[in-house]
Design a protein around this nucleic acid. Structure first.
Lengths: 145, 145
DNA sequence: GTAGGAATTGGAATAATTCTAATTCTTAAT
DNA sequence: ATTAAGAATTAGAATTATTCCAATTCCTAC
């Protein structure tokens, strides 16, 4: 377990380590994404951040998100034409989008399988990113009401 | 090879077979997608369709696309937040999005591999759709300028 | 302390898509 | 053939997520 202070420090450190100025806005945006592991949208992040920093603007949230994504501290996830979601799990993984609840769950993918996917590409094709997502419903398991 | 007439007939037939009224607008939209295998956007489809049917409206193109997609005659492909593209290849397959040219290429996926992907889901998760896409660049093969 | 660059801000602008309400077209029953 | 009813089309307005812009504020290094 980390104390809030430790948390904040590692968070600040991750920003500076990637050469970013650890502005209060960036820190609070980053913190909110790390805490809320529900793949929030920019609007949701804005709402949560605003509770802690009422003067922040939506444009800043977008700016922070962009720099966090560009510097590899946060991942961007898109489903169809729905608003972009942000995900702190940097580990290469897939997503399951529950069409009933709207929730998004991370799905681990063995590296072995990822290289099998890469192997599908014809010679000369070089993929810098692979996106794998499932859409469907997650029924409650029998015996788990 | 199909004569244009045969083509048009199978096209009409595919509409009626799925219980859709084969309106001229639907036919021309469908035809354009089948001919242009480049995963066009709604705007591109609108432009191409307009050449043959100058009175058609963009709203109708969107309506037609929606019904074609809902009835499984055309697939919808989304990359990040870019405009939706439409694809006549119903065969389950993946997409490679060339970040240099912007082109989209179909990638075949063996059913075997698809079931391995499905197997990643925890018990109780039921996927109605799997989306797999690659982003990167397709370098010309050595010896193929 | 101050200059210069970086970040933030609010509001306007953009772009893809959807909505709305009116019109036109089909179809099927008479 | 006529017509009523439902379906499809249309033009334009509305929506929504996101980006752009220009002005201000904030840091940092000198």
């Amino acid at each position: 377990m980390h104390s809030p202070t430790e948390n904040r420090d590692t968070l600040t450190k991750r920003l500076t380590d990637t050469g970013l100025r650890p502005t209060p806005q960036r820190e609070v945006v980053f913190k909110v994404i790390l805490e809320k592991r529900t793949h929030p949208t920019a609007d949701e992040i804005f709402a949560m951040v605003k509770a802690q920093m009422p003067t922040i603007s939506l444009a800043t949230v977008y700016n922070c998100l962009e720099t966090l994504v560009q510097n590899g501290l946060v991942r961007q996830v898109n489903f169809d034409r729905a608003p972009t979601r942000y995900c702190p799990n940097l580990h290469e993984h897939a997503h399951f989008h529950d069409e009933v609840t709207g929730e998004v769950h991370d799905i681990e993918v063995p590296v072995e399988l990822l290289s099998q996917l890469r192997a599908l590409l014809p010679a000369g094709y070089d993929a810098s990113a692979i996106e794998l997502s499932f859409r469907g419903k997650a029924s409650p398991l029998p015996g788990h009401n």
